[in-house]
């Protein structure tokens, strides 16, 4: 709505109409599944899980590791790796420009963050995909960083945990990104031969070249609830087979039912579940469970804006 109209409208109507049409900046976020307005501090405390419908919202790579790792003794791995445009790729925009744009928007150099640390005291290496960086796509830097992280896990004989969220291979690195599938699979096979555990956690969404390489090769494949996971995207499949896809197709629950996953784990339980499994696989004592998240006392001063539009599906 243009400014002059705002000015001549009675203030009551104005604020009303604003509440109906948009989410107030900063304090509220809309759940993409149930459409409820969520109070940000409460959502933060709840690890970006909707308190109303338990939908797991997407989180950044850094936040993911921040949630997963103990606070002390974190060490970032291969932070210096930077992407470069070997193919001089250009579509409607130069790849170089896209990189710069995505680096600015996310504050990351590329789509994977790797850290050494502990989870409930269990030493491990953890990597995490930044979906907001070109759709978490895997190019040369993602592949190389993954391998370097795995190499540290191999050297120190500690487990590797990967949180994937990716549309697949990075088209702008063309054939070079395809080769990252073989590269990451090779290092994971070496870990397997060496008896070092690898846990793959699939978070919404995981497709294509990432799904068909590192994400499906875990000793355990774990997913968050309701994550969309597959090889081909639903639209491509629909166009190919020309029929309606079954209900819940390619969701975590569907994959569990079809035997592709070991378990679906709620984000609140993830730290403990992984630490508990790893402790068994590596002959360490069972870690102590953490207190449940308590949302008591985090209440907004004002009521949530009224949701009038239909919830997103």
């Amino acid at each position: 709505m243009s400014n002059w109209l705002d000015k001549i409208m009675p203030s009551m109507i104005r604020s009303d109409s604003k509440q109906r049409t948009s989410v107030p900046e900063g304090l509220w976020k809309k759940c993409p599944k149930c459409g409820a307005f969520l109070y940000k501090p409460e959502l933060d405390k709840n690890l970006d899980v909707c308190p109303k419908c338990e939908h797991h919202l997407r989180v950044s790579a850094r936040r993911r590791l921040d949630i997963f790792l103990d606070e002390d003794g974190r060490e970032e791995i291969a932070a210096e790796l930077e992407p470069w445009d070997r193919l001089k790729f250009k579509d409607s925009k130069r790849y170089k420009e896209r990189l710069a744009q995505n680096q600015k928007a996310t504050g990351e150099k590329d789509a994977l963050i790797a850290m050494k640390g502990r989870t409930l005291g269990i030493p491990l290496v953890a990597v995490s995909f930044e979906f907001n960086f070109l759709g978490g796509s895997m190019g040369q830097v993602v592949g190389e960083k993954f391998v370097r992280a795995a190499n540290i896990a191999l050297e120190e004989r500690i487990p590797l945990v990967c949180f994937s969220a990716s549309g697949g291979a990075r088209m702008q690195e063309a054939i070079l990104s395809l080769m990252q599938m073989a590269k990451t699979a090779a290092v994971l096979e070496r870990m397997k031969q060496e008896g070092i555990p690898y846990i793959s956690v699939l978070t919404d969404p995981v497709f294509g070249g990432v799904s068909a390489s590192l994400a499906m090769l875990g000793d355990l494949n774990i997913a968050e609830p309701y994550a969309l996971i597959g090889f081909a995207g639903p639209r491509v499949i629909e166009q190919t087979v020309r029929e309606k896809l079954p209900e819940g197709f390619q969701r975590s629950e569907f994959l569990l039912e079809h035997g592709a996953l070991d378990m679906i784990v709620h984000r609140h339980e993830m730290r403990f579940k992984i630490a508990s499994v790893l402790a068994k696989l590596t002959g360490q004592d069972q870690p102590e469970a953490e207190a449940a998240i308590d949302l008591e006392g985090i209440k907004p001063d004002q009521p949530a804006p009224e949701s009038t539009d239909a919830p997103a599906s």
């Binding site: 073989a182 090779a186 994971l188 096979e189 068909a212 390489s213 597959g230 190919t240 197709f249 592709a260």
Partner: peptide, 26 residues
């Protein structure tokens, strides 16, 4: 390319590809 179909997804297209990559490497 690998077939993008419903049955292929149900039977683990991603896993089948990934597993081959891993085994072939050694």
């Amino acid at each position: 390319g690998a077939y993008p179909g419903i049955g292929a997804e149900e039977r683990g297209q991603s896993e089948a590809i990934a597993y081959n990559l891993a085994v072939m490497s050694r």
